[in-house]
Computed example of a mutant assay.
Amino acid sequence: MAALGELAQLIRSKNAGPWTLTVDIMFPDAQTFEHVVASGAVTPAAVGPLLGVDPGLIEMFNYAPANAIKFSFPRQYPNGHPEDTDAFGGQQFAPLVDLEIPSPNAEPQQTAAAGALR
């Protein structure tokens, strides 16, 4: 396994208006992009808990021509609100850096209790 931060060329977050944040994950080549997308590790269900966002509110787009994954979601507080701790939205990507991406040829793991594939 490798961390997303090791595979991506760039991971950034920023404001997309006063009510929305956006995250861009850009990869150095098509092979790495395709591997990460195929792994199923970067999905709304996976990133929502890391970012403290309901996965149902995350809009995600895989954009192959740019070897990029982009997603947007509502901010907890609007930009400039007294409780907003990140006025530019530039720190929100941090929990994604350590997201584990399975190796391309990794075997599915079995749970000891049920023997089920996960």
Rank of each mutant, 00 (worst) to 15 (best):
Q9W: 03
V53G: 11
V37D: 09
T85Q: 13
A66V: 01
G5D: 07
A38G: 13
G52A: 04
W19P: 12
P104I: 14
S39N: 06
F88N: 15
P65N: 13
G56M: 04
P49H: 07
M1C: 11
T43N: 02
A66R: 13
A68E: 03
S103Q: 09
A94R: 10
W19T: 15
M60H: 07
N15S: 05
A113E: 06
R75C: 01
D54A: 10
N79F: 01
I25G: 02
F88Y: 10
A66Y: 00
V97N: 05
D84E: 15
N62S: 02
F93H: 14
Y63T: 08
V37N: 02
R75I: 09
Q92N: 02
P95E: 10
V53N: 11
M60C: 10
M60K: 06
P78L: 01
P65C: 07
Q92V: 11
A106Y: 07
P104S: 06
L50A: 05
P82G: 10
T43L: 00
P74M: 03
N79E: 09
N79G: 03
I11G: 12
E59N: 09
E59K: 08
T20P: 05
S103W: 11
D54Y: 04
P102G: 15
L10D: 06
S39I: 13
W19C: 01
T32S: 01
A38Q: 12
T111F: 09
L4I: 00
T111E: 08
A38Y: 09
F88V: 03
G115N: 07
M60G: 04
M60W: 03
A38F: 08
L57G: 12
A16N: 01
K14T: 14
L7V: 05
H81F: 02
Y77V: 04
K70W: 02
L51M: 12
Y63A: 10
F33C: 10
Q92M: 09
D29Q: 03
F61G: 00
A41M: 07
R75L: 01
D98K: 13
G52R: 12
N79T: 14
V47H: 08
Q76H: 15
A87M: 07
A64W: 14
R118C: 05
L21S: 15
P104V: 10
T43V: 06
N67H: 11
L10S: 03
A38E: 11
L51D: 05
M26C: 13
L50C: 06
G90K: 07
